[in-house]
Every structure is written in structure tokens, then in C-alpha cells.
């Protein structure tokens, strides 16, 4: 097994008595694409800033392995904050050249690489225009260009598509899919769909802790449990019946919301048979009955909601 590129162990960050990140551990393998998934306030930004070296952790360690020349690990890092701010009086080209020089390139090399990076993110035509006149989507793409220009070994992107309209979002996702072929990406999002579109691994965060992590394929089958959804007419007798079903031994977990119920069951066949038979016998006014399997989305909604 190859040594992981990034190794985070027991990382904590507290502000006074408030714990933003409460001791998390994970590893990122070279060449992988990992989504840091979680609702607002989960601690995604805090985690990424600590990895980027912008925020000192309260405890824990971050190990970045590799052969980087000259010492400063930030040379090997590309970082895009949640709402990147540039110098409005600069042109896009000038900013990316500035970033490339800071990463150690000489002027000539920086200019060549900046041009290529801007072309790559689709800003070739706007490269000589002042950043002050860029749209939100263009700024996000400029942010990607400045994070990419020095070919970093690890790319940290904080909610790269959250602030964009559907078209801008499409463009950036498309780019990420290309970029992931070349380097390791960690990006945060609060939308599971974004993660599934680009990444093969997710880390789900909630309240500063990791609620679940792993390869998407593994998690999909892990959370693919038999599920029965039942909806009845709104009457007291029916609701009482739903409650009684929830207490049956073959129900692993019941989520009741008035006349709407979701049951996780261990044996779909038996459960379906029993529920339908009872419903018919007790003359329950069923509106909907559905037998299927739960998805990752259900798991994520449960983490986010509960």
C-alpha cells in the first residue's frame, strides 16, 4: 500500500469553548479525489484552512508526505477559499503570474504557465481584463487557475461551486473532472450530488466530527438497506396502526411523521407480506406503499437532519 499523501490525525480546533473541529482523522491517498461533505457549520472550512497552514490547530497533526524541494509545503499546495478575493485593479493574467512567481517560478516561466492555466479554465479571452469586472463564475475559475498554475500535488477547494449559478456550476464541475486526472483533490461541499459527480471518496462531517467516511461504492452498498415507505389517509386509527407496525420485530428502524412512515426492515419479503395483510385485515386506508432500498442520499439526509 502506498503511503498516503496527506495524513490527518486527531485534528481539533476550538475557539474559546466552542469546538469547531472536534478531533478528526483521515488519510488522503495520492491521486484520489475526496469530497468533504457536510452542512453549514460542520467544520469544513476550518479543516481545509488548517490543512492549508492558514490556521494553527488546537491539537492533532497534519502530515504531508512527499519530496518537496526547498522546504515550504505550501509550494506543493493549491488552495481556493470559499469566496476568493483578488486585487480588482489587476488583470486575470497578472494575478495568476503573481501566484506563479510566489510559488517559485521566474517571470518568464510564470507568464507561460499563467497563460496556459487561464486558457485551461476558459479565461483566455478575459485574461487581460481587470478582475474588478469579472462575474462570480469567472472569479471562481480565476481562483482555480491561481491554485493550479504551479501544478500542486494537493488541491484544496472550499465549496468551489456553492456560490455559482447552474451554468457556472456545470463549467467548474467539468473542470474538476479533468483536473482530477492530474492531481489529488480535496473539495468541500454541502451537496451530495456534487461529491458523487466528481469524487470517489467522501468524508461526511457534522458538528466538527466525521459522521461517515469511505469510498462511495462501499458506502452505497452499506447504506442500501431494504426500506418500506407507507402513507395512509390522515386518520387517528391509521396512524395508530402505523405506530404498531413500527414496534414489530422485523422493523430495524421506524421513522414516523404523522400519516407518513419509513421503515428499515431486515427481511423485505416478510415485512411486505405482513404489513399488507394487516392493512387489509384492519381496513387501513392506504394511499401509498413502496418497497425499495435506501440510498446514500437517505443516509446523508439523516446525518444532516439529525
Amino acid at each position: 500500500m502506498m503511503q498516503p499523501l496527506l495524513q490527518v490525525s486527531n485534528l481539533r480546533k476550538s475557539y474559546g469553548r466552542h469546538l469547531s473541529v472536534g478531533g478528526i482523522s483521515f488519510e488522503i491517498a495520492q491521486g484520489s479525489c475526496v469530497a468533504l461533505l457536510g452542512p453549514n457549520g460542520a467544520g469544513k472550512t476550518t479543516t481545509l484552512r488548517m490543512i492549508a497552514g492558514l490556521l494553527p490547530p488546537s491539537a492533532g497533526s497534519i502530515g504531508f508526505t512527499g519530496s518537496y524541494q526547498g522546504g515550504d509545503f505550501r509550494r506543493e499546495l493549491g488552495y481556493l477559499p470559499q469566496s476568493p478575493a483578488f486585487y480588482g485593479w489587476m488583470s486575470g493574467q497578472e494575478y495568476v503570474v503573481f501566484a506563479a512567481k510566489l510559488a517559485g517560478m521566474n517571470r518568464k516561466e510564470a507568464e507561460g504557465k499563467a497563460k496556459a492555466a487561464l486558457e485551461r479554465v476558459g479565461l483566455k479571452a478575459a485574461a487581460r481584463r481587470r478582475i474588478a469586472g469579472y462575474s462570480g463564475g469567472m472569479k471562481q475559475r480565476l481562483g482555480l487557475a491561481q491554485a493550479l498554475v504551479h501544478r500542486p500535488r494537493l488541491l484544496l477547494l472550499d465549496e468551489p461551486v456553492s456560490a455559482l449559478d447552474p451554468i457556472g456550476r456545470r463549467e467548474v464541475m467539468e473542470l474538476l473532472r479533468e483536473i482530477r486526472e492530474e492531481t489529488t483533490i480535496v473539495f468541500s461541499t454541502h451537496v451530495l450530488h456534487d461529491a458523487e459527480e466528481v469524487c470517489d471518496e467522501i468524508i461526511v462531517m457534522k458538528d466538527g466530527l466525521i459522521a461517515e467516511q469511505g469510498a462511495l461504492s462501499v458506502l452505497r452498498s452499506k447504506y442500501s438497506q431494504p426500506v418500506i415507505t407507507v402513507r395512509t389517509e390522515k386518520n387517528a386509527e391509521a396512524i395508530q396502526w402505523l405506530n404498531s407496525v413500527g414496534a414489530k420485530p422485523f422493523i430495524l428502524e421506524a421513522r414516523l411523521n404523522g400519516e407518513h412512515a419509513v421503515f428499515n426492515v431486515d427481511n423485505l419479503k416478510q415485512a411486505r407480506h405482513t404489513i399488507l395483510k394487516e392493512a387489509a385485515a384492519s381496513n387501513i386506508p392506504l394511499l401509498q406503499f413502496e418497497a425499495g432500498s435506501s440510498t446514500l442520499e437517505d443516509m446523508f439526509m439523516k446525518v444532516v437532519g439529525g
Binding site: A52, G53, L54, D72, R74, R75, L77, Y79, P81, S83, P84, A85, F86, Y87, A99, L102, A103, G104, G143, Q146
Partner: peptide
């Protein structure tokens, strides 16, 4: 936030 971006570099 422009300082955040610059200080994420070396």
C-alpha cells in the same frame, strides 16, 4: 480575504 489567498502561498 485577499490576504488569505496570498498567505496560502509561501
Amino acid at each position: 480575504g485577499s490576504a488569505e489567498l496570498v498567505l496560502s502561498k509561501p
